[in-house]
Simulated scan of single mutants.
Amino acid sequence: MKGILVPSKPMNFNIPLLRPIRILLFPFSLVYALVVKVRNWCFDKKIFTSTSFNLPIICVGNLAVGGTGKSPMVELLIRMLKDRYAIAVLSRGYKRKTRGYALAGESTTALDIGDEPMQFHSKFPDVAVAVGEERIVAIPQLLHDRPGTRAIILDDAFQHRAVKAGLNVLLTDYSNLFTRDWWLPSGDLRDAPSSYRRADIIVVTKCPEAMDEDQRRAIEIEIDPKPHQQIFFSTISYGTPYHITRQTAGVVNEEVEVLLVTGIANPAPLKRWLNEHSRTYYELAYSDHHIFTIDDLQAMIRRFTGITAGKKLILTTEKDAVRLIKFKQELEDWPIYVLPISPGFLFGEEDRFANVITTFINEFK
């Protein structure tokens, strides 16, 4: 429960507790599935139209709600492309306090454009980052503001078929493959499993580092990629924690107790990492994209103060950090650190992935 300070290592409040509730929601899933299938059929039959643009557009998305690693993948693409091409990123800007199109600038905050776009803007200030609920409207505005743009990365737009991307990168979580999932709200799928056929690249994310060829082959058989599709496997690579305001490096090891503060969809991989790297950890969990208040900050400080260990720190994610940084002055003197992550490709295939991306841009007509 939020507000109770208890060690998280021995506890396991897992999804099976929610399954009876989800079973009750099964009829609503059938209605949802019907609506989505009719919508997709209308796009397939060109009753609803998809618009193409005369530049390379790379879409990063998934079929399920929750964290499949879209933001780290977008960041990987930015790092891969920004020194070679003038690129831009376009997101919806989920849970921002504004509406319509907006291009990030020097005074932009997470409330203006959302936490994930703000994360991109903070880490890559020279890259154009924009938001807009209607991508088909936002893309021309973005190109008007940045006419030299060579390619656009669409963040979380696989199911938004009004824009036809030239290259679709579909992510699916190793622990919750779309092939084993079910429709919302009794499952996590927001799009039809068969929609995976629209993807050009499929990335199975959050795989165990020790994944072997037999496991890889079993998943490839289960997903059944089509002849035009390439499939990759990635794991989570954790970087060095850095202080939220001073950017100085921090250390998490078996002597340190950690207060984990998150407002993300799937903190499970991060908890597993803490199980392996910290003495113990305590959790203060909020809903995905939670907008932190001064009361939340005070609760965090109280819980941290209640930890009696000599070596302790507060740890949060980069996505949460952009929503906490508005309390910069209050956080300056507290040991609150941010843990960066990035996708690490297994089986030595990052160069092959990069080649697919750059070839698409270079050969775009």
Rank of each mutant, 00 (worst) to 15 (best):
V131R: 05
Q229A: 03
Y174C: 00
H228W: 15
I202R: 02
I219N: 06
Q159D: 03
Q141S: 11
A151K: 13
A210W: 15
T172G: 01
V127Q: 09
T235H: 14
W183L: 05
R217V: 03
Y174P: 03
D145T: 07
W183A: 08
L154H: 12
S122M: 13
I231A: 05
M118H: 09
E220C: 15
I152T: 03
E220W: 12
Q215L: 06
Q230R: 15
R146W: 13
I219M: 07
P125R: 02
V203Q: 02
A162E: 09
G166D: 02
A162F: 10
T235D: 04
R150F: 07
P147M: 00
Y196M: 13
V204E: 00
D191N: 09
I221S: 08
C207M: 08
E116P: 14
K226V: 01
G148P: 11
E209M: 11
R216P: 09
D115A: 08
H144K: 14
I136N: 06
T149W: 12
I153P: 13
A138L: 04
V131W: 08
A162C: 06
T149D: 02
A210D: 13
D212E: 11
A128P: 14
Q119K: 10
I223N: 00
T179K: 15
Y196E: 01
F233P: 08
A210K: 15
R161V: 00
E209Q: 14
D173F: 10
D126I: 06
Q159I: 04
S122T: 12
A162S: 14
P117Y: 02
T235V: 04
L170K: 07
A128R: 12
I219G: 05
I152E: 03
H121W: 12
E133K: 08
A130C: 11
Q119A: 05
L170C: 07
L177K: 02
P125D: 01
S234G: 06
A151D: 01
T205E: 00
R180H: 15
E222F: 12
A199H: 12
T179P: 14
G187P: 11
L154F: 13
Y238C: 04
F232W: 11
H228F: 10
R150Q: 15
P147I: 01
R190H: 08
I231H: 15
E213G: 06
A192M: 13
H228N: 07
T109H: 08
D212Q: 10
D191S: 10
V163T: 01
P225G: 00
Q229G: 10
I236L: 08
R180W: 07
D188Y: 14
V204N: 03
A157P: 13
P193L: 06
D181A: 08
L177A: 04
Q141F: 12
T205I: 00
P185D: 00
R180S: 08
T205G: 03
K206C: 02
S175N: 11
D191L: 05
K226A: 10
L177H: 06
A192I: 02
I202M: 03
Q230V: 07
P208T: 03
M118R: 09
P117N: 03
R190C: 07
Q229D: 05
D145Q: 15
S122C: 13
K206D: 00
H144Q: 13
I113G: 07
